[in-house]
Design a protein around this nucleic acid. Structure first.
Lengths: 117, 117
DNA sequence: CTCCACTACTCGGTGATACCGTGTACTGGT
DNA sequence: ACCAGTACACGGTATCACCGAGTAGTGGAG
């Protein structure tokens, strides 16, 4: 697949929020999970910048724990603000994707009042 | 709706390509059409920068024509490169949106080989 | 006739984001 | 002793949508 970086802007952070929201986890594992999910070209550096941003914006709770197979891991979990942000992300995604798919299908549709655009 | 600007990155240009592809048109009208389609906060300045970029990248064919109700209009139509770019855009959109929706639905699915991720 | 609204395009600068490369550091196997 | 895999941080870059101001043409209200 072609380069997706521009299209990922604004959505990748939401994906990371979703992953953290479903399970407390850490950067390296999030990167691997994203790769498995089809976001093949996302690399660690990108994920870490997102995680630092989430932390700076107060959307996550952080806990450092030893690993056993390498350096200590920073585990992330959503707090209330993070869950709210995640809900807003999915609302935006729903809004945007419905409109884009409508445009794709010809950009015409009928409202409840029968108005055709 | 909240601010969509970050999420629009990489997709708004594709939307403009789609609009131009379905009908030869000009910047001001494209902006109005996007607003009607639900991209309410997109303003003219944004659309014009996209159009200039498309022109610079050789994806469109341009024709200036008098208007009758204002300054002359610059009409845009896709050329072969533009149609190819549009096809790539929809392929990327399809790829990305399917993966994001999968993540939204729990991030688990079964391949044709029966492997569960 | 003058002002204003609407139409229509251009351009320099800003902020946000994903990406790149490099560096640091811990563990275990050869 | 070396190297691969794990794990995180950070400075710099490119791209993109957006903002604001400017320039112009037409037509209607006062």
């Amino acid at each position: 697949m072609d380069d997706l970086t521009e299209m990922l802007k604004g959505t990748l952070e939401g994906c990371v929020l979703e992953i953290i929201g479903s399970e407390e986890t850490y950067g390296y594992a999030i990167t691997r999970q994203l790769n498995e999910l089809g976001f093949a070209d996302v690399v660690e550096g990108t994920v870490y910048t997102i995680l630092l941003r989430l932390e700076r914006n107060g959307l996550v709770q952080v806990a450092k724990r030893p690993s056993g197979v390498g350096p200590p891991r920073k585990f992330y979990a959503l707090n209330d603000a993070g869950r709210e942000e995640l809900a807003k992300f999915w609302a935006k995604w729903q809004y945007l994707s419905s409109r884009i798919n409508r445009l794709k299908e010809g950009g015409r549709w009928v409202t409840s009042a029968g108005v055709v655009y």
